[in-house]
Amino acid sequence: MTRTLGRIGLALALPVILLVTWWFASADSTSFYQPPLETIIKVFPHTWTAATFKSDVLPSLIRLFIGYGLALLLGIGLGVLIGANRRLRALLEPILEFLRAIPPPVLVPVLILIAGLGDPTKVLVIVVGGVWPILLNTVEGVRGVDEVLADTCRSYQIRGWLRIRTFILRAASPQIVVGARQALSICIIMMVIGELLGATDGLGYTVVEFQRGFQIPEMWSGVFVLGLLGVLLSLAFTLVERRVLNWYHGARAAERSGH
């Protein structure tokens, strides 16, 4: 009991110290761009109300989820196809290697040029950013499936969708999860960039509007909200990962203790 309390204390100590330090260090700040923490917290409630949540945060989130979902579907689907086929893999490898190397944000101007400034473009921007890590990791995962398990499937004549669902996707899932996690942070970044480069609503847009309008404490609060969003989504991802890869961590632990 005291041990867990001690742990919680340790976990909370540094954040508390940092916040308190910031509070006092900025208390007398007269710099326009670095307002006191107190001011930032004061503007928070009226900057981020239920109404602004609905008008600014929600559209961002919806686009993010659609884009991330599409990136997952596309990346895993194509990844299984390419990973399972040796020739196709050899054929596409240099292209994929090159496309992956292109920093995704530079594609945003192209997409805006081609598809305009609407919601589809903003979703597309998220998909284009997130699909690569998922695709390439899925290819790696599918390529690395265990040969004995593959033989087992063949000899028991487990084929088609049943094979993909219960063997390929599950065997590749640790690697797919690695890609999905990388993709999630890229997708959030792409969401913000898409909104910075021309949008009329959304979190990124709002924060930039605050900056352009010199509403600095409000801008700081917006940065907080963005940061919080990243933290919460990463937390949610960890929870999902724990469920999906429960078997993997168990098997790894069993393997380690066995040796």
Binding site: S185, I189, L196, V207, Q211, I216, G222, G227, L229, V231
Partner: peptide, 14 residues
């Protein structure tokens, strides 16, 4: 996990 571009407006004003 704080997305680095979130710091962009901050970086610009700082």
């Amino acid at each position: 996990p704080i997305p680095s571009v979130a710091l962009l407006p901050l970086a610009i004003v700082l």
